[in-house]
Design a protein around this nucleic acid. Structure first.
Lengths: 251, 251
DNA sequence: CGGCTCACTTCCGCTCAGTGGAACCCGCGT
DNA sequence: ACGCGGGTTCCACTGAGCGGAAGTGAGCCG
């Protein structure tokens, strides 16, 4: 919309969205200049658009002059479907699981070739862990990821196998080895990891089924699998069934 | 931006935001026409803007042709500050509280003249309740609301007193009565409600303090207060102190 | 204290991106 | 076959948006 435009073809909407997209997990607060930089816009343009976003509540300006995501976007984000519904519905079962194991509990779904964490219950005294709600992690290095990958379409599996990045010395980077593990996951109906994502953290995970389809995965993180793997698997499977049943009961 | 504009003065950005704002708790999925209607835009305009929002991931089109909030907005909404931090930080304490009481547990803050629910743990077998995460409820009819109101600035209290809407036959609608209750809340350091929001549900709530400031409230919902009010208050206060201490420890 | 820097803000003339009524398409119910 | 109501495409008109340049002001340093 403007004669002056340095890069004609870009719509106002795309510019406004670029500003929102400039925020991510590592950039929760940005100065105007940084924001303009990350969105690829001239500062005055960013300034004008940002003012509108702030007026509407999509962004908020902090006391120190930096910008952060506003409450109104938070509100609207919560209306996103499925994710929220599943999370709400599974919530009681996660608590039960937490109560039974006192370990960090995860609920995750597959998002493309990554694991998306929908919910996490962290005990006051459990293993410190990298995931947060909303974060995405690679599938091959997490318990829930292996479960979801084992039941993913062939082309997804193929793509993931293509780039098995090493995260710790124990991360599995050989496609053949991962493929054998996935077969075992399908046979035994649970997956494990041993320090493949973070040193000092092991995990167990099971699928959540709605009818025959695997729609999510439930996992827990513990310091060691040594002694009570059967107990953990049993607790997980009971919870996963519970969630699955609730899923069947509603839509 | 356009000669044709029916209502000149409206910016593109405001129109795009109006489309996002068309979604709320009761309108999580909207057809194009409904969306245009609610945003106050002509259908073709809405159509074009919506296409851009979909391309970016702010909205998603369902199989049936309706629009819903997209995953990317969900992501970005989660980056909103304070709210999320507080929720994350309080999470373990809420679990502990849930474990000790098996009642529905709430974490809430004041947002203007309303209560904003940041988190909710609902047991598989607890009282059904109206609140969801992200929802706003009136302050005078909820336990957490009374706590937050008792420690709110005078002008907020004044404004709330002005419109005490009746929700159940037990809702307090007399400013004088509410004022006396708030004084008692400040003295005893906890608040209660008895079927003032939903019939069959009572609640107890306590403030969460960061230094001297009351920054949030912690509450639980139970079928009756009759027998174990002291136990519940004690459990709540322990948890609230825990959260407060963690708040002090970080920024 | 003057002068420099750097981030933010305001100004304003040019122009093309956005507008929305009209027309069209398409699935569905009758 | 025909009307209806949603979604989609078209396109001539024009004012909303653009961004370089200039202005502001807080912070730092010699």
């Amino acid at each position: 919309m403007a004669g002056n435009t340095s890069r004609p073809g870009a719509t106002v909407t795309s510019r406004a969205l670029a500003l929102l997209g400039a925020f991510d997990d590592d950039h929760r607060r940005l100065s105007l200049t940084a924001l303009a930089e990350r969105a690829g816009l001239p500062v005055p343009t960013a300034h004008r658009l940002v003012a509108e976003l702030v007026a509407w509540g999509a962004l908020t300006r902090t006391g120190s002059g930096e910008y952060v995501v506003g409450r109104r976007l938070w509100d609207i984000g919560l209306l996103a479907p499925a994710r929220t519904d599943l999370r709400e519905l599974a919530s009681p079962y996660l608590h039960d699981l937490y109560g039974a194991t006192l370990a960090t509990v995860h609920l995750a779904v597959r998002d493309g070739t990554e694991v998306l964490y929908l919910d996490r219950l962290r005990g006051s005294a459990s293993v410190p862990i990298v995931s947060t709600v909303g974060s995405r992690l690679p599938m091959h290095a997490t318990g829930v990821g292996k479960v979801l990958l084992a039941h993913a379409p062939a082309e997804v599996q193929h793509e993931v196998m293509g780039r098995l990045t090493r995260i710790t010395p124990y991360t599995i980077t050989q496609p053949g080895q991962l493929r054998r593990q996935l077969a075992r996951v399908r046979r035994d109906d649970y997956a494990t990891t041993v320090e493949e994502m973070s040193l000092g953290a092991c995990s167990v995970a099971v699928p959540v089924r709605s009818g025959p389809r695997v729609v999510a995965a439930l996992g827990i993180v513990v310091p060691s699998l040594r002694k009570d793997r059967p107990r953990l698997v049993a607790a997980l499977q009971v919870s996963a069934r519970g969630v699955g049943r609730r899923l069947g009961a509603t839509g």
